[in-house]
């Protein structure tokens, strides 16, 4: 890759496979907050099984902000669901905080694209929801919830109904609700992609401030490279069908960063070039599904991810 002017602090690492045998040891994963090892996932289609994720290896340190970037359909949301424990991988393991994950848990709270706030509860009770499940008593619960509502600047709206909030406010309540649980890490699945540009810009700023204050580990999925550069310490680029980690970038820029900062723009352009080949592949698929052999697989696997939403009592 050619070096762009003004981006000399871009550290580009070619992705190196993590050796499973050595990487697994518990001692090694002490400061690691998340270890994804050899995770593969496939779905059944008419043409046989299709790999959505193939041998994903990833390590995230405590307090790190990591973005997963890839074109649509590359399986980044599937990977997120596996880390969250909402889906099971076909093979491979995910270790969170030194423990192998078994299903969903309050140590890894997910923030979804839609805020997923509960309309039968008002704002403050939504923030208290997780605390109530933990069995924390009424007054303490209220205090913790207020503290995090304050962090997202929404104390004024504590008694509002959910439908009275704007899209951006809803996501801020969702962030407060997640933080109130004091989780090991936050998993954010394209949380800002349904918002308008201005709101997104505000939330990028707010999220960075929150992250600097709380030092939570954050795994953030997005298809927006600019967003990833604005937020992340490290960015992983995923390729499509099968989903593999293609490249890793470290972003070393002072915070809080601005979407419109020149350096952010430069980084984004560089990464965009990396992704271009992948995007072209997807475009070829969508435009010419009949003749494209390599993406025959991808295009037939339209069935949505089978997610366990929990049947058993």
């Amino acid at each position: 890759m050619s070096e762009s002017v003004g981006v000399d602090n871009l550290i580009e690492l070619d992705y190196v496979k993590i050796d499973g045998g050595q990487g697994t040891s518990k001692a090694n994963s002490a400061k690691r907050d998340l270890c994804i090892q050899h995770v593969s996932k496939s779905f059944q289609s008419k043409n046989g099984s299709v790999y959505v994720l193939e041998d994903i290896n990833l390590e995230i340190n405590q307090g790190e902000f990591v973005c997963l970037v890839g074109p649509s359909g590359c399986g980044k949301t599937t990977l997120m669901n596996i880390v969250a424990g909402l889906e099971k991988a076909d093979s491979g393991d995910v270790w969170a905080n030194g423990r192998r994950i078994q299903g969903a848990g309050p140590d890894r709270v997910v923030i979804f694209q839609e805020a997923a706030l509960f309309p039968w509860l008002n704002v403050i009770k939504n923030v208290e929801f997780g605390l109530k499940l933990k069995g924390i008593s009424g007054r303490e619960r209220r205090n913790i919830a207020l503290e995090y509502l304050k962090m997202v600047h929404l104390t004024k709206f504590q008694n509002s109904h959910i439908h009275e909030l704007s899209g951006g406010m809803k996501q801020r309540v969702a962030i407060a609700r997640a933080l109130a649980m004091n989780p090991e890490m936050l998993l954010m699945d394209e949380p800002f992609s349904a918002l308008d540009a201005q709101t997104r810009w505000i939330l990028h700023y707010e999220l960075q401030n929150i992250w600097m204050k709380t030092k939570k580990t954050i795994l953030f999925v997005t298809h927006n490279i600019r967003e990833a550069v604005c937020l992340a310490d490290r960015i992983f680029i995923l390729s499509t069908s099968p989903g593999r980690i293609k490249k890793e970038f470290a972003i070393d820029l002072p915070r809080p960063r601005d979407d419109n900062d020149v350096n952010v723009a430069e980084y984004s352009t560089r990464i965009m070039q990396e992704l271009k080949a992948e995007i072209d592949k997807v475009v070829r698929c969508e435009m010419d599904a009949d003749s494209c052999v390599e993406c025959d697989i991808k295009c037939t696997s339209v069935e949505p991810a089978k997610t366990d939403i929990g049947g058993g009592i």
């Binding site: 997923a116 997610t307 929990g310």
Partner: peptide
């Protein structure tokens, strides 16, 4: 289903989920 997924990641299980 999103409500259920969200509640599960916050630790809602079994009868509490109901």
């Amino acid at each position: 289903p999103l409500y259920i997924r969200a509640a599960k990641t916050m630790g809602a299980k079994k009868w509490k989920l109901y």
